[in-house]
Amino acid sequence: MATKNNDGNGSGNDGGSKPLPGIDDVPLTTASIARLFDGCKIVLFDCDGVLVDSEPISLATLVDVLDHFGAPLTLEEVAERFTGRSSSAPIDHIRALTGQDVGAQFKPFFYQKLFARYETELFSIRNIDAVLDALKQRAIAFCISSSSSVERLEKTMRVTGLGPWFEDRIYSADFVRNGKPAPDLFLHACADMGHAPASTIVIEDSVAGVKAAVAAGMKCIGFVGGGHYAGQEEIAANRLYDAGADIVISDMAVLVAALGS
């Protein structure tokens, strides 16, 4: 079982020990983050880049797959266009560039390459188990609301060992007509869990995800501690703030401290 422990073992970016500055460069404090959870009944977690440090693996694999289908992009272009989006986005890109409809071929080919790498390279985000435990101790519900397919989420939960935390509380873009940045997935998950959008916090690493949370009328915590943002945390944080995030953090440990305060 591949997991990243709270002492930082495992691959990926460990992030900073302090939260990033807030809107208008006002420093975040444990108290200010704790206040965000006032009235919170449920937390919706994105998966890739929030629960698990999968984005570097996924983006690098996608570069290879796009090249295979004759629609090459650089790693930077792939990250800009497809982070936080469902698989329909790269399929549409291939169709637009080559005229090919690879809808039936894309996922099996991509997943074959991706899942082989998951077995040895995929780790959970540092301190995420402590965050989930802190939410459980405060009786705040939580679930996964991810652009990933059910198949990919099941693989992720198995490899990282995070599955028991969520059991059947896993919502995929497969469940709704419109993926992020549309609010459909978050609204579906929230309704199915029996909570109102106003009592919900979303934790997201992508602009598309933050925009979806804002459109759903939910609070949003941006996270830039994944390996795909290594060395670019402040730039990424500014993008998430511009998209509407309430706060942006680079280490899940700050949430553990806030929830325990």
Rank of each mutant, 00 (worst) to 15 (best):
K4D: 01
K4S: 14
N5L: 13
N6H: 12
N9G: 10
S11T: 10
D14N: 12
P19R: 05
I23Y: 12
V26M: 02
T29S: 14
T30L: 11
T30V: 15
S32H: 09
I33Y: 09
A34S: 13
D38E: 15
I42F: 00
I42A: 05
F45W: 10
F45V: 03
F45T: 00
D46L: 04
V52K: 02
D53S: 08
P56M: 03
S58A: 14
L59C: 12
V65F: 01
H68T: 12
G70E: 11
E76Q: 15
E77Y: 10
V78D: 09
G84K: 01
R85L: 12
R85N: 04
R85C: 04
S88L: 11
A89F: 11
P90T: 11
H93M: 02
H93K: 01
H93I: 05
H93P: 01
R95K: 15
L97K: 15
G99V: 03
G99L: 02
D101M: 09
G103Y: 03
A104S: 14
F106L: 07
K107H: 09
P108M: 02
F109M: 12
F109C: 10
Y111S: 05
F115D: 07
F115V: 03
A116Q: 14
A116I: 06
Y118N: 04
N127K: 09
V131K: 07
V131D: 06
D133S: 12
A134F: 11
L135K: 08
K136W: 02
A139N: 15
A139R: 14
A141W: 07
I144P: 12
S148A: 15
S149C: 02
S149I: 00
S149Q: 09
E151D: 14
R152S: 13
E154Q: 15
V159D: 10
T160H: 10
T160Q: 10
T160E: 09
G161Q: 09
G163K: 13
P164A: 07
P164D: 04
F166K: 12
F166N: 08
E167M: 07
D168E: 13
I170H: 10
Y171S: 08
Y171V: 00
A173P: 02
D174I: 00
F175V: 04
L185T: 06
F186C: 01
A191V: 00
G194E: 04
G194H: 04
A196Q: 10
P197W: 01
S199Y: 00
E204I: 12
D205R: 00
A208R: 10
G209R: 08
V210I: 15
V210W: 06
A212P: 09
A213M: 03
V214N: 05
V214L: 02
V214R: 13
A215L: 05
V224D: 06
G225Q: 04
G227S: 10
A236F: 03
A236T: 00
A236C: 02
A237N: 08
R239E: 13
L240H: 03
Y241M: 08
D242A: 15
A243S: 06
S250M: 06
A253S: 14
V254L: 02
L255T: 01
L259V: 07
G260K: 14
S261A: 14
